[in-house]
Amino acid sequence: MPIRFSKRPGLVIYFTAGDPDLATTCEMAIAAIDNGADVIELGVPFSDPLADGPVIQRASERAVAKGTRLTDVLRICREIRAARAEAGIILFSYLNPVLQMGLEKFAKAAKEAGADGVLLTDMIVEEAEEYLKVMHATGLMPVFLAAPTSPDERLKAIAENSQGFVYAISRVGITGTQTELASDAKGLVERLRKFTKLPIALGFGVSTPGHVRAVGEFADAAVVGSAIVGLIEKTPATEAPRAVGEFVRSLCGGVKSA
């Protein structure tokens, strides 16, 4: 099914799968959906998350240490899909775990598990020929990242090769919370608009209801990651689904119904 944002801005919520454990990730994702998340980004933990800030690094390290691997993430993807048919689910990974499974095998398993799309942090459009072929053949939506540093010709290629939505990075740098939205963000979204009619989701540093509201003024969706992962880090596992649900609902305070 297509990715649908039921409101403006839509909400994309990121989890590092397996932190604190797989069953809790599953419950938290369902709680997020029930409280207003349109899309779940299910992060595959990786030993070397070089695009991530300290919060997601620590979560990845914990999840990898617990033995969470790509096959486990696919398993809970299936469980989330079985529980909630409507929400979008994007698998979010570094390239290497996917390569080791084998791209075709991964795509087939992801599709069967009910994922809608895939975002690979370290896959750029120039290297993506075979990846795109497999995504198209399987019916999975590839989502590419667009950066404030990307010149227009790159944004064009990124927009043309993305499906579902385009993920715009609000600022240069790694993932992590910040107090104010970067001034880079609006300019990037405006430049991207010239090349696509797809929804544009803005992420990196979006961490409060106020940020979400501000994103809604110029982008179609807000991606919240480190703020969620940081909340999970501070909360006992049994409390985490409820806490995540409440936080997602508070983020929706900045949202207008469509």
Partner: peptide
């Protein structure tokens, strides 16, 4: 070889 990096680095 190749280039497998976050998009933010590509311009650089």
């Amino acid at each position: 070889g190749g280039r497998y990096v976050p998009e933010t680095l590509m311009a650089a």
